[in-house]
Amino acid sequence: MAIVVVDVALKHEILDPQGRAVMGALVRLGLTGVADVRQGKQFVLNIDGDVDEAKLAQIHEIASTLLSNSVIEDFTVQVRP
């Protein structure tokens, strides 16, 4: 059993209202020192068997078609040791 983590975040140039709201809250709470916040989401996939090249390609396919919206989001795939 292997674990693969897919992180999805809005592309750099896309507005992130949720991150902006968190940033606003930090300022209101007086928690200084943070210049900007951007939020995203994380998917933790428990994989049957080993993660080989073919499996990884399939996970990329899943990440690009289902887990993320390629128009406005980027994703990264990491195999957790």
């Binding site: 140039e13 896309i14 507005l15 992130d16 209202p17 709201a21 390629s70 128009v71 406005i72």
Partner: peptide
């Protein structure tokens, strides 16, 4: 040509 998408914030 895909990058020209805007994201809205209704609360703003």
């Amino acid at each position: 040509k895909r990058p020209s998408v805007q994201v809205g914030d209704p609360f703003m």
